[in-house]
Amino acid sequence: MAAPVRFVDALGVLGRHRVRFVVVGGVAAVLAGAPVSTFDLDIVHDRDPDNVDALIAALVELDARYRDPAGRILRPEASALRGPGHHLLMTAAGPVDVLGSIVGDETYASLVLKAESVELDGAVLQILGLPALIESKARLGRDKDRATLGILQRTLAERQRA
């Protein structure tokens, strides 16, 4: 059976290990108030060595391994997490995509400047704000991005109107 998706559990483990990251993608859109659905948690992490060590500890607790079509058990390693690549993982709390960078060369350092703080169960999370989410979806231009772009734009308009 597939691992159950538990967004709060995954975020809680990352928070307990004091990992520095920005939530992007569907969960960021949900937290920002957009009525979209998602099945995975996407984060962009700070690639500094101390943060990668904290991230590895969190991923060990989450029993993270790559979503490998061949079914092999491949664990993420610190050396890879220090790079800009994407790590598409399955964890005990469901799919988690750990991204060294997104659209172009956007990294934690640049994204955190565009982030909004939200409080979740007493912890403060950094999520990519709606303007930056819209910009990234527009730049990516994939079918799945275009499908949600209108919802994000209207959500931002409603927030600004309120």
Binding site: F7, G26, V27, V30, L31, A34, P35, E119, E158, A162
Partner: peptide, 18 residues
């Protein structure tokens, strides 16, 4: 639907997605 989700707290929004 957007107005409804905006009326929720972030925790409630995530609970809906969950």
């Amino acid at each position: 639907l957007i107005r409804w989700t905006l009326s929720l707290t972030p925790s409630e929004r995530l609970a809906v997605a969950q």
